[in-house]
Amino acid sequence: MSAGPYNYSYIFKYIIIGDMGVGKSCLLHQFTEKKFMADCPHTIGVEFGTRIIEVSGQKIKLQIWDTAGQERFRAVTRSYYRGAAGALMVYDITRRSTYNHLSSWLTDTRNLTNPSTVIFLIGNKCDLEGQRDVTYEEASKFAEENGLMFVEASAKTGDNVEEAFLETAKKIYQSIQDGRLDLNAAESGVQHKPSQPGRNPLSNDQQANKDNCAC
């Protein structure tokens, strides 16, 4: 692994949620491996993936939890919402039912995460334009009404996948800088790791400690 310890200054925790088979695992795989996993087995419980990205010159490690869409694992997956800094809520544009369930996913997310959690709505499988069942306008209206960021993406072609993950990170980073997200709070979903000296203007006490350090 090229990334040694502390090769990044933050860890952001994400969750990916949505109905069974909407392509959550494929989105994660596309993001971390840049490959499409055509026959992906259903996720049981949760799986995770990581990738280090850069936002405003800061290296950020994304720790992404891909949850199972199946109802029967809801008890397990719910325990991963806690402390997520970002939530990617996915539906399948070719299956209306997955869109209709969004409100219940949203309720869960709002109830189980903290108010500063960034929620990003992804309409997946936009490569299957011919089978479209949910219009872009409708979904973007839903997103707007609920204050979500929204994009249509395809885990198959990779369209907008990168963007969705990066935009979420930017928004989170923004909240840290605005002070809306308290790093010291429990379950903020963000961990601060010490990095090169002078590169984290956000944490003063860390800075102070550095100065105290003799070595």
Partner: peptide
């Protein structure tokens, strides 16, 4: 790795030995 990276040592000390 730890030996070859003074920066790493330093930062890790900052974090943990500091206080």
């Amino acid at each position: 790795y730890m030996k070859s990276l003074p920066v790493f040592r330093k930062t890790s000390n900052v974090k943990d030995v500091g206080r």
